[in-house]
């Protein structure tokens, strides 16, 4: 399971700070979150995403692989752009 933490306006909008979700990579994870909270996928893809403390733009972007117990932090854009 991947530990997902939400920050910024996204967290206020979905009224949730933490989830545990099963996903192989960031893209899949974002898709699951989009469906779960009925969020526009394109807007959600504009979030700032950190995997185990590293920005996905320094890793493999949305193709970054995820492994059991990884921690993903998702920030609304602007909070951390």
């Amino acid at each position: 399971m991947i530990k997902v933490r939400y920050f910024g306006i996204l967290r206020l909008d979905i009224k949730k700070s933490f989830d545990e979700i099963e996903a192989q990579d960031v893209e899949v994870l974002i898709n699951i979150i989009s469906s779960k909270y009925n969020l526009d996928i394109d807007e959600l893809k504009n979030s700032i995403v950190f995997v185990n403390g590293k920005n996905i733009n320094e890793l493999k972007g949305f193709k970054t692989k995820l492994y059991d117990c990884d921690e993903v932090q998702i920030f609304s854009p602007v909070a951390g752009g």
Binding site: K45, N46, S47, I48, I56, N57, G61, F62, P77, V78, G80, G81
Partner: peptide, 8 residues
């Protein structure tokens, strides 16, 4: 734009 599309 830069703020709203950080991954573009």
């Amino acid at each position: 734009y830069l703020l709203e599309h950080p991954n573009s």
